[in-house]
């Protein structure tokens, strides 16, 4: 099964993600370029972290209009699996594929550390079989998820919060670390699963996202 990883100008976790995908038996990473529109027949798409278009205007705001994102939006609308990590999560929110927006961290600092997140949903293609708690690294300046009261009420009622911080690092409303859409096929989160796939580098809690995909696509 092929998993596409989109590279935007300024993406910097795309190579890490392709490597993480290729470590998992049954998955093969396919590099996708922001200017192309052809998804090359992939079975799932990942929007990696980084600083697409220099974070100009707002994080993810310009990437949303790239040719590849038009294809990704159609792919998502067909119910196919899409995962956005960090800047990828910001892009999904700007593209209205996920609700709300990622604002600057409450304390203004760039946060780079391991966090514990609680897994609330295992019925998405990316979270099947995940443990209740994961330790994953975060590395962001704008991870403070916000939405209006009405949206928060709707997504809490609908169970769209997939991950919550055990200890809120950035001021995100309701401790939201990651979300899914109503159809559950699009998932976004601030922590980096692709940076936790090797015991030498501090943990393997990120591998479950990809083994989940193998199960779902099989």
């Amino acid at each position: 099964m092929n998993v596409g990883v989109v590279t935007f100008p300024g993406s910097n976790c795309d190579a890490d993600f392709r490597r993480a995908i290729d470590r998992v038996e049954g998955l093969r990473a396919v590099a996708l370029w922001h200017k192309d529109t052809d998804l090359s027949g992939v079975d799932a798409v990942v929007l990696p972290g980084g600083f697409s278009y220099g974070d100009y205007l707002r994080c993810g705001a310009i990437a949303r209009f790239s040719p590849m994102m038009q294809s990704v939006a159609r792919f998502a609308a067909q119910g196919r699996p899409v995962l956005g990590v960090c800047n990828g999560f910001q892009i999904l929110c700007e593209a209205h594929l996920l609700p709300g927006v990622l604002m600057q961290n409450r304390d203004l600092s760039f946060l780079c550390k391991d966090v514990t997140i609680l897994v609330e949903r295992t019925d998405t293609p990316w979270t099947r079989g995940l443990a209740n708690k994961l330790v994953l690294p975060i590395a962001h300046g704008d991870g403070n998820w916000q939405a209006d009261d009405e949206t928060v009420k709707r997504i809490e009622g609908d169970g769209q919060v997939v991950f919550r911080y055990q200890s809120n690092p950035n001021g995100a409303r309701n401790d939201v670390a990651g979300l899914c859409n109503a159809a559950r096929n699009v998932v976004g989160l601030m922590p980096h699963p692709e940076r936790a796939v090797d015991p030498l580098l501090g943990g393997t809690d990120g591998l479950g996202f990809l083994t989940s995909l193998v199960e779902v696509l099989a």
């Binding site: 705001a61 709300g100 927006v101 939405a147 209006d148 949206t151």
Partner: peptide, 8 residues
């Protein structure tokens, strides 16, 4: 459509 994000 672009300059502002109407969510916030």
């Amino acid at each position: 459509q672009l300059l502002a994000n109407p969510v916030i």
